[in-house]
Write a protein that binds this DNA or RNA. Structure first.
Lengths: 154, 154
DNA sequence: GTCGGTGCAAAGCCTTTGCAAAAGC
DNA sequence: GCTTTTGCAAAGGCTTTGCACCGAC
């Protein structure tokens, strides 16, 4: 954890940005989460430590941290975007329930050498792979058992 | 093309929904597009045929068509969601440029048997796989050549 | 002490909702 | 003709922006 916090601070300073308590706090929250967070959850956690941190600052900081490559947006089902820490050893894929949004993390090297194959085949650089597997989780299958595919209008 | 249009109409009727010109038009636009479209682009194309179709109707119809399984949301980079037609023989994955959002469609069976593996391993049903490969496309690599990773603050 | 960063409030934008009129079936 | 669907306008909710004050360096 502190490994990343320190790294994040260094990156900020090296790029000429100021290391404010707010930025430090927001980055720590995301790096310590171990999962993807939405803006409102990030705000909740940050404001638990310092209630004065404004949403504006959170949005502006998320954009900055993303530009610096410290965090990234996870494109998952749902209306609001998710954010997660970028780290060499912790990239992963997602298996998400379409109904309750329960999420299971899948191993990063599930896709083997696809990475390099795509880079070579299309000439893209810095390719990152995000596999989104969406389905109906076991517990939701019960709730939706009857009204599944071939049923009641409206 | 007309194959899907007919199919879509049938599905609507069978499920007890009315087949209005608006719904027909919106579904046709998406099915004929051959790529994923954002709401504003769908509106543009629909309104090119009938300027009176309102955005409300488009939003409501998109939700309906999704519920009926005729279209789906593609979770791609960008603020607004993309929609694309669902068809047995045309599912695909995306290789998107992070900068210009240029998109290349990848073959659906790029991922082999991963599909079944996940269903069995985690007990999820109706699993669909969406691979999102993001990178920097050849043309953007030129523009960003100098100011890439280690540069100018702000 | 400077200049970048923050907080607050207002503005923006996309999306959803309420309701009367229109139109499938 | 009955009930769903539409169009319009208003409301909502998340995100961005303007600006004066604050604070990191």
């Amino acid at each position: 954890m502190h490994h990343y916090v320190r790294k994040g601070s260094q990156v900020l300073r090296k790029r000429g940005y100021r290391l404010t308590p707010q930025r430090h706090m927001i980055l720590s929250v995301i790096q310590d989460a171990g999962e993807h967070l939405q803006v409102d959850e990030i705000a909740r956690r940050v404001q638990a430590h310092n209630p004065n941190v404004s949403l504006s600052t959170i949005y502006r900081t998320l954009e900055l941290l993303q530009k610096l490559g410290l965090i990234r947006t996870a494109h998952l089902p749902g209306d609001q975007p998710y954010y997660e820490a970028v780290s060499e050893d912790a990239h992963h894929h997602h298996l998400v329930c379409r109904h309750c949004h329960q999420t299971i993390h899948l191993d990063m090297d599930l896709l083997g050498s696809l990475h390099e194959q795509l880079q070579q085949a299309y000439g893209f650089h810095d390719v990152t792979l995000d596999l989104l597997a969406s389905g109906c989780c076991p517990s939701c299958q019960q709730h939706f058992a009857q009204e599944s595919q071939e049923h009641l209008p409206h």
